[in-house]
């Protein structure tokens, strides 16, 4: 059982949970995730580490309130307990000797990339941060991120993710203005990961994406999270979550994330009813 220190709504639907997990905080590395079990009847879901504090023994998780588990987490109050936090899991991305790195974050990935921006900047790498959001009102953590980026850019969904052409142009423009840029790290919704990978493939710019497939145990035991890269199967929980975006079988990835769509909806409707009963 882990005690909740803080639950904060950052922007509509995006939440920050600060929870005690001293052993996780002690071993955490940028780019890793944890498995969270909200309560005794809960699922095990992966959430990226958005920050941690070794002294206080806490970890920060930024998540999108989307399904049953995240809704349960979003409704927690300080002093409540979550059933379990296990981690840190996955491998930190392997970053070759780079002088300049572009981080593209959308949704929960803006928070999830924060530790990487900090680590890279402190290692002397030039950091460009591109934050993607639905609109200006959906941006969060800008001040924090600016502290660890040499260039902080924003892109809004209406501009870019509709006609993907614009995102492509934007990335091309960044690359032409920054010839030393040799690596792109992307975290956020699947569509963003896919679109950025597509754009960087054109200009042969190495791109690592943080995948977020369905997981059960998160330790390599079940194989729910299998993904195909260059026709070879990997387990995202232990081999990833970072993979080269260019060789990934995106169609399979999108599809496997939908394995339990109807049950997820059913569970959500049931939870909503329960929440209503409590408020009545």
């Amino acid at each position: 059982m882990n005690r909740v220190v803080l639950v904060e709504r950052l922007v509509p639907n995006l939440y920050r949970l600060v929870v005690e997990a001293p052993e996780v905080a002690a071993s955490a590395r940028a780019g890793q995730f944890v498995m969270v079990i909200p309560d005794g009847k809960g699922e095990r879901i992966p959430i990226n580490l958005a920050d941690w504090d070794k002294e206080k023994g806490t970890v920060d998780l930024v998540f999108l309130n989307l399904g049953v588990s995240t809704r349960k987490l979003a409704s927690l109050k300080p002093g409540d307990r979550v059933e379990g936090i296990a981690g840190p899991l996955g491998r930190a991305p392997e970053i070759p000797a780079a002088t300049e790195v572009l981080l593209v974050g959308g949704c929960y990935g803006v928070g999830g990339l924060y530790p990487l921006a900090r680590e890279l900047k402190q290692a002397g790498v030039r950091v460009i941060f591109l934050a993607e959001a639905r609109s200006r009102a959906y941006l969060y953590w800008q001040e924090r991120l600016k502290k660890f980026s040499d260039l902080f850019l924003t892109v809004f969904r209406s501009d870019c993710l509709g006609p993907a052409q614009e995102l492509r142009e934007l990335i091309k423009k960044i690359k032409s203005g920054h010839p030393d840029l040799s690596l792109v790290l992307v975290m956020g919704c699947s569509y963003l990961l896919f679109k950025v990978s597509e754009a960087t493939a054109d200009i042969q710019l190495k791109t690592l994406v943080s995948l977020n497939p369905i997981m059960v145990d998160g330790t390599g035991m079940c194989g729910a999270c299998r993904v195909s890269v260059a026709s070879k199967t990997y387990f995202a929980c232990v081999d990833g979550p970072w993979f080269e975006g260019h060789g990934l079988d995106w169609k399979e990835y999108f599809n496997r994330r939908k394995a339990f769509l109807s049950q997820e909806e059913q569970a959500l409707v049931r939870l909503d009813r329960e929440f209503w009963k409590r408020t009545e």
Binding site: K41, C222, G223, F260, Q263, E264, Q266, A267
Partner: peptide, 24 residues
């Protein structure tokens, strides 16, 4: 599915009692 995933969902996560338990 791997048997590990199928059985873990059912046994460890009590998925056979979905939606009372959250794991489908």
């Amino acid at each position: 599915y791997s048997a590990n995933e199928y059985l873990t969902r059912v046994n460890l996560m009590k998925g056979f009692r979905f939606p009372e338990f959250d794991t489908p």
